[in-house]
Design a protein around this nucleic acid. Structure first.
Lengths: 295, 295
DNA sequence: GTTTTAGCCTTAGTTTTTCTAAGGTAAAAT
DNA sequence: ATTTTACCTTAGAAAAACTAAGGCTAAAAC
């Protein structure tokens, strides 16, 4: 009815992205994490979008948010739009810099498992430049700029995923410590090392051993596996280790396995490839040297 | 090869949007116009995206830009992603505020053709609120927040488009001026009024009349048709008018047609509906009262 | 029945992004 | 030769986005 003066603008794109992430994950905090911002930023984006649309999109409860029926209905459209945008961005990255590979991996994998393989790859194909970013949780490959992720996971293998190694745990220690360990009971006299993110490893391994009752399951926690590993190398205790991460040190004798028992966990070390990277000309080279040519 | 410290971020969404618009339109200026910003803003967005991708996307010539093969190849993916995002936003608008209609129209249409019809609609369906935004060029309905556009166009009718009126031009003037006009030659003694955006109207109409040689085709230019119309109503000259815009004033006798000759232009007054609005429950009401129920 | 925890909120203030304004260049058109 | 078109650059201003810190509330844990 009225003659508005200025051309009205659409909502901010960042607000739309925040809405999509928050609605998909059902949590502002989780969305903030995915977008690598603070939750407050997400709150404000959502608020700005709600103001633009003049309609509420979330019902805020003290313990989490719930989508309104409106948001529920609109989510799929936004998700597929941002998925498509993400793929376009991945295509841009893959085609603009086809000799660069970005890998996201668990810190321990980035530090212990990757380096020897990266060396091999560099000797075989020096024109390929690989950058590795360490993080605790796997990035969303349709949204974040990575070509390859390496994380432990127990889920069924999805598209573009392949198993690189099984997740097997067993105790390791320096040879001089192994010399004084004659049975499981001797563990009570040693420091049991483990990684904070894998807090239950000792517990699980001991439960799987016969006659392991009465062994203390506490020990020194390290927030990074590689720090605990360093401690073990220098005779600081017995570490409950993941096979893929300690194999080189077992091979060269710096660490030994004081007990033969090993435990296979349901998880695996899984490599996941971004769709655009799977179509890249350097994909097969990277696959051969980084992932050992496994199918 | 190196362990990067921070999680790398993707490109800015606004930069992607600027790239998509500039690549699709083949011009930074046109993109700036579509996005309602200055060309400098587009320049910087593109530059930031090129820096992120570490690859050029446009070749800048002194007279326009040309897409690089890379940009050419990536464009369709971005266009369809932003189209989908635009549709999701339109759906949000349509469902969050289903009683609100946003119309974009040529200033003259907004001021002269729409008001009586909006009055009718308001009397028939007062719960519907209509807002009208006047602009010179039609907005892109998949990107900008409008439900309906009303512009003159000569192109074939596309999807969601309908013809509201033919574009017919003829001279009009106040009755007292008409009284002293006995033939085309008398036009030489009068001020010929026309709209700046329709500069060739007098020319075209005179060319279509027999025995119109030697009539001066210059006159007073007004940047808005409605200003020229006001001038004509008050006896300020003879206006070359578009039928749809002056019909009410002809009906009530404030203006008359001093000559019988009219010229049908290839253009039409075309109403175009946003896909999401076509599915809205109020669509048929708006269509009936605003567009005269035309199929 | 407290206490803890999780999850979101608000606000103030800062940083980053985005935009505009103004002046400049070069090729094409007149 | 002059004008026009179209993009560029830069400085500075405006707006957006983000962070940090403190607070609230309800479910879960004790």
């Amino acid at each position: 009815m009225s003659l508005a003066p200025a051309r009205p603008k659409g909502p901010h794109l960042n607000a739309l992205r925040a809405f999509e992430a928050a609605a998909r994950l059902g949590s502002f905090t989780a969305a903030a994490d995915e977008l690598a911002v603070t939750p407050g930023a997400v709150t404000q984006h959502i608020k700005s979008l709600e103001a633009w649309a003049e309609a509420p999109l979330f019902v805020r409860n003290a313990r989490g948010v719930v989508l309104t029926p409106l948001a529920e209905e609109l989510l799929p459209g936004f998700t597929s739009a941002f998925d498509q945008l993400g793929m376009a961005v991945q295509a841009l990255r893959a085609k603009a810099a086809p000799r660069k590979v970005k890998v996201a991996a668990l810190p321990s994998i980035a530090q212990l498992w990757l380096p020897p393989r990266l060396g091999q790859l560099r000797r075989a194909a020096p024109e390929i430049s690989v950058s590795v970013v360490a993080m605790e949780t796997p990035p969303n490959l349709t949204r974040e700029p990575f070509d390859l992720t390496l994380f432990y996971g127990a889920d069924q293998l999805g598209a573009n995923e392949m198993e690189v190694a099984r997740d097997r745990i067993f105790p390791v220690c320096a040879p001089e410590i192994a010399a004084r360990l004659t049975g499981l009971a001797d563990l009570n006299k040693e420091t049991l090392l483990h990684d904070g993110a894998w807090a239950k490893d000792w517990d699980m391994w001991l439960s799987a051993q016969p006659d392991a009752d009465g062994i203390a399951r506490a020990g020194t926690v390290h927030s990074l596996f590689s720090v605990a590993l360093e401690e073990a190398r220098h005779g600081g205790g017995v570490l409950i280790a993941h096979e893929a991460l300690v194999q080189p040190l077992l091979d060269n004798g710096e660490l030994v396995r004081p007990f033969s028992g090993s435990l296979d966990l349901p998880a695996r070390l899984v490599a996941k490839t971004a769709p655009a990277f799977a179509r890249s000309p350097i994909f097969s080279v990277v696959q051969d040297f980084l992932l050992g040519g496994a199918a």
